[in-house]
Design a protein around this nucleic acid. Structure first.
Lengths: 249, 249
DNA sequence: CGGGTTTTTGAACGCACTCAAGTGAAGTGG
DNA sequence: CCACTTCACTTGAGTGCGTTCAAAAACCCG
């Protein structure tokens, strides 16, 4: 295999301190510090030994760039966008700690999305050729990888199904999915920050930003949420949930 | 690995004659007859040696069924549906020859979608445990598989982006995507049959079936298409394409 | 031919959009 | 430190697109 295409910066391992989110990471025990207890480690002991810090608004990768590495978010939040038929960017996903970025690039060999940091963030880079080697070496890693891709497919199916529901359901679903993702990470499911703008939320959900604003206000007036700028408290998640499953008259 | 969970019927290889669409199949040279020229073949020489015929409206697999095998469509057309939050089925995909079915089941170990034949059809079953063995044995197959999953992700992203465009653009995009898929298979891109009902199209695109009907009539009146029942002729695909990329005033 | 399904066509409504104005907070420079 | 700018968000009013409701027409299959 040819590793020559990997930028030099990626090929210089740096110490990667354990993170609270490493247990969710797909390469968790193929990563140097995480598997450090096993002295010798495996063939891929420094698989994720490459970090990258990003400032707010900094671009992790641009659409059409060749696939060099997959990324796992260590810290912070990012958004992925893809241009629509008119060239206007559409927010395809919001990424948080533990998320795997770059799966859409495997197919064509170059990235379909542009990924930008919503706040100061940090990612682990997993050089793709070495990742492929590691997949061959470890059935467990391969299974986890296939699971991750499959999960992404299922998640996007669900998003597609939600895409044509009433605006209130869509927004409630979005808030609850964020809540669930924070819960998975051991964070509070009922109190978190919306790191993205109303415009980003609207764009992602296919709503005008004014609609997002109006709906958040409505949820607040109903006592279902508390909202101060971007700080959110889910005061009555069940009401939001009920909105999704309520019979349509 | 445990093959005991595979129904006996799947474990009985039957001759699978070559099909025009085999070259698109992900397991093409891991399949018995396709690789038959190499006498001995590999460790997975009968990987896809299991067929299943389906009559119109027959169910290939149901949601929540455990993942036993992936399927490749040999012949015919199928639709995949998934219930929305209210239990109403939503058409997530239409499948045709060469398509791989079941990727959404890998994650949870059971299928997320119910798949039904739209006409008399035939699929090859690929027992999943043996498929995993084959992936380990062949880097080429593994790469093709990852490409297929990635492609699915990219395709669903594109569908999500289209989900909030005007109805006419959505329908035009749908017709053109069918056209492109037939072209990939060496069939006419300008003349094909809509194997699904208007209701299925509408459900898939998030439109009322009346809207689909009205738009098809409009396209016909504009001279962009010919339509007789479900037989479609794209008379002016460029006009449909222009609809997608036209600047919004 | 007759019953049921699929498709077409018409009319009126309602949701979410656009347009527009205004508020508020954060950042910048004198 | 305070005017000024800028950006994000909120709120209001009116409109248009795709919906629902309704009915008729066309088609399929026995």
């Amino acid at each position: 295999m040819n590793h020559m295409s990997i930028p030099r910066v990626l090929r210089t391992p740096v110490p990667v301190p354990q993170s609270a989110h490493c247990p969710r990471c797909i390469v968790r025990d193929a990563c140097a510090p995480a598997g450090a207890d096993a002295s010798g480690a495996g063939a891929f002991d420094v698989l994720a030994g490459y970090r990258r810090r990003l400032e707010r608004d900094e671009t992790l990768l641009r659409r059409a760039q060749p696939l060099v590495a997959l990324y796992v978010v260590r810290l912070g939040h990012l958004k992925a966008t893809r241009p629509d038929r008119h060239g206007q960017p559409h927010v395809t996903a919001f990424h948080m700690a533990g998320d795997l970025i770059g799966l859409d690039a495997i197919c064509a060999g170059h990235h379909a999305c542009t990924v930008v940091a919503l706040e100061d963030s940090e990612v682990c880079a997993i050089p793709y050729p070495e990742f492929q080697d590691a997949l061959r070496a470890s059935s467990q890693l391969m299974q986890r990888f296939h699971c991750a891709m499959s999960h992404e497919i299922v998640r996007e199916q669900a998003a597609l199904i939600q895409a044509n529901t009433p605006a209130a359901e869509r927004l409630a679903g979005f808030l609850l999915s964020l809540s669930a993702r924070y819960a998975e990470r051991g964070l509070s499911p009922n109190r978190f920050r919306l790191h993205m703008s109303r415009a980003d939320i609207g764009n992602h959900l296919g709503l005008a930003l004014e609609s997002v604003s109006r709906l958040l206000t409505r949820f607040r007036d109903l006592g279902w949420i508390e909202l101060d700028k971007r700080e959110l408290v889910l005061r009555d998640p069940d009401k939001l949930e009920a909105l999704l499953t309520a019979v349509p008259a």
